[in-house]
Design a protein around this nucleic acid. Structure first.
Length: 374
RNA sequence: GGGAGGGUAGCGAAGAGGCUAAACGCGGCAGACUGUAAAUCUGUUCCUGAGGGUUCGGCAGUUCGAAUCUGCCCCCUCCCA
């Protein structure tokens, strides 16, 4: 599709990090980027205007969840996700592949597709590559995903091989089913932590010539080094000029580590979920706002942050709102966590342009304290 | 004045002779969260030198053993006058 392409403007001389502009039918966005997740056609507690102000380029919605509520046809009648949720920037939909994994107790996988039990009322559902594409065409996002299987970690080689080969066959079916010209369909590299499977999957997907490639099956409990290995084993077989999207990754060290290895796009529920639970990422580390020590802490959450929350409110106030379970607290903290990650990625872009990404990454992680792997 | 029901950990509330430092909920404290079944989940919450020590309104009993049984006392709630 002609309206969608990645313009790579600079590659860091010392690592794989790239800076560029992703052109989409709903505007251009700089990469590397962090994409906040709005599963049910809303990034929980945040308005589209706020997301834009924070510098969010692309936002996500989920095929499985939106197909259950409100239903793909209703979104289509509304004029597609952009109109329905009043977001005129680029939108990406996940295919529902991750739900095959996360709702594992309620599913059965066959070559044809996956039988689900609707997690709300137990209704029987069936997802296949064709169904996932049909729904995503109705939802109308700019970037859509192939229907894949996200295997658990660890898995034995035989299952991983079988599953990865099936994911490839599903990718082909997705490509054949996909008709809309204004949507970019990405292929998803699976293969667990088996180098040969990652290679095979990346190469086969490349032959199918997708406008972009995702790396799936990471950040599901594997050690950090494994995740980085899987990224490397996937990226090196993907075409240089196409966008690369590391799915589901949202902690600081993984994002920076991903950029270092040539990833352009990241998405994660982590900043918004953590915010709702009172966990905040700051330039000097992670904090739990509910801790008693913040009761009388009238300082700003993160003096280095420029978000609405940090510019106007104190930790004592945030703690108070959180302890009282006030919605406004969740909003303020979501604003902060999302802005924090976007700002990290903005800093990364500047660093890449000046070939000092590695230095930036190390300094950022050191300041953060790298507690608990963040 | 007559009658009835109660007082259990910070609060609410189970327990009706040993298995009870005492269920459960709230509150408190702490932790987790990665393509969102998540405004969710987990741990902990009498004191402690970790060996124990003090608890179930108060005091005195019964018993090998009492939050649980008996007596008296102090409070609270409701009903009738």
């Amino acid at each position: 599709m002609k309206d969608f392409y990645l313009e790579i403007l600079h590659v860091d001389k010392n690592c794989g990090a790239r800076y560029g502009i992703l052109h989409t039918p709903h505007g251009n966005v700089e990469v590397p980027m962090f994409m906040p997740v709005g599963t049910l056609a809303t990034v929980k507690t945040l308005s589209p205007e706020e997301l834009k102000e924070m510098g969010a380029g692309v936002i996500l919605a989920n095929t499985y969840h939106c197909s259950i509520r409100p239903g793909a046809d209703i979104v289509a009648k509304a004029g597609g996700l952009h109109k329905f949720m009043n977001y005129d920037g680029p939108i990406l939909t996940d295919s529902g592949g991750f739900q095959v994994f996360s709702l594992a107790e309620n599913r059965k996988i066959t070559e044809e597709g996956v039988s689900f039990k609707n997690h709300l009322n137990g209704d029987k559902l069936f997802f296949s590559p064709e169904v996932a594409i049909d729904i995503q065409e109705k939802l109308g996002a700019d970037i859509i995903m192939s229907f894949d299987e996200c295997m658990p970690y660890p898995v034995d080689y035989n299952y991983a091989k079988k599953s990865t080969e099936r994911t490839l066959r599903w990718a082909k079916r997705c490509k054949e089913a996909h008709k809309r010209e204004d949507q970019a369909l990405f292929g998803i590299v699976q293969g667990s932590d088996y180098a040969d499977l990652r290679k095979m999957c990346a190469e086969e997907l490349t032959k199918m010539d997708f406008p972009g490639y995702s790396i799936g099956g990471t950040s599901i409990g594997e050690p950090k080094e494994k995740c980085f290995e899987m990224i490397e084993q996937s990226v090196k077989y993907l075409p240089f000029e196409k966008p690369r999207y590391l799915m589901g990754v949202g902690s600081l060290d993984y994002i920076l580590g991903g950029i270092y290895r040539g990833i352009d796009m990241f998405d994660c529920v982590l900043p918004t979920r953590l915010a709702r639970h009172g966990a905040l990422m700051t330039s000097s580390g992670r904090i739990n706002i509910k801790n008693e020590k913040y009761k009388e802490d009238f300082t700003t959450l993160d003096p280095k942050c420029d978000c609405y929350c940090c510019k106007n409110y104190t930790k004592a106030y945030l703690r108070h709102l959180h302890v009282c379970d006030e919605t406004f607290g969740k909003r303020l903290m979501s604003i902060h966590n999302v802005r924090f990650l976007i700002k990290i990625v903005e800093g990364a872009r500047e660093a890449i342009k000046e070939d000092r990404f590695e230095e930036y990454m190390k300094a950022t992680l050191a300041a953060f304290g790298d507690k608990r792997g963040f």
